[in-house]
């Protein structure tokens, strides 16, 4: 493939890339928008509790509510640091 073809191909794809990125982002932003108003508060309080035991970053916890036809799933995601265990021991 010549250089020109390469540029043509990548240009041909840029709208498709834009579409993919937008679909992911907008789905995310809509879910956030439609989530109940207590979620941020819940997230903060959970973060405070976890931080009593493990040093995690502010953005280490995410709470989301997934809705399907007949059920709601509250998903809690906590990313522990690599050295979480050590920190934990240290605190004791």
């Amino acid at each position: 493939m010549g250089l020109l073809d390469y540029f043509r191909a990548s240009r041909r794809n840029s709208a498709a890339v834009a579409k993919d990125r937008l679909q992911i982002l907008i789905a995310h932003e809509r879910a956030e928008r439609n989530s109940p108003s207590y979620l941020p508060l819940l997230q903060n309080e959970l973060l405070a509790v976890v931080r009593k035991y493990v040093h995690v970053d502010h953005d280490a916890i995410s709470v989301s509510l997934e809705q399907s036809d007949n059920q709601e799933i509250l998903e809690l995601n906590i990313v522990l640091p690599e050295n979480g265990q050590a920190e934990h021991a240290h605190q004791r």
Binding site: R11, A18, K19, Q23, I26
Partner: peptide, 17 residues
């Protein structure tokens, strides 16, 4: 520009929004 894939098409935008 839509034809050569440089610009989101009507269908793309409608599908997203």
């Amino acid at each position: 520009r839509v034809k050569v894939g440089e610009m989101l098409s009507v269908e793309d935008v409608q599908e997203i929004l």
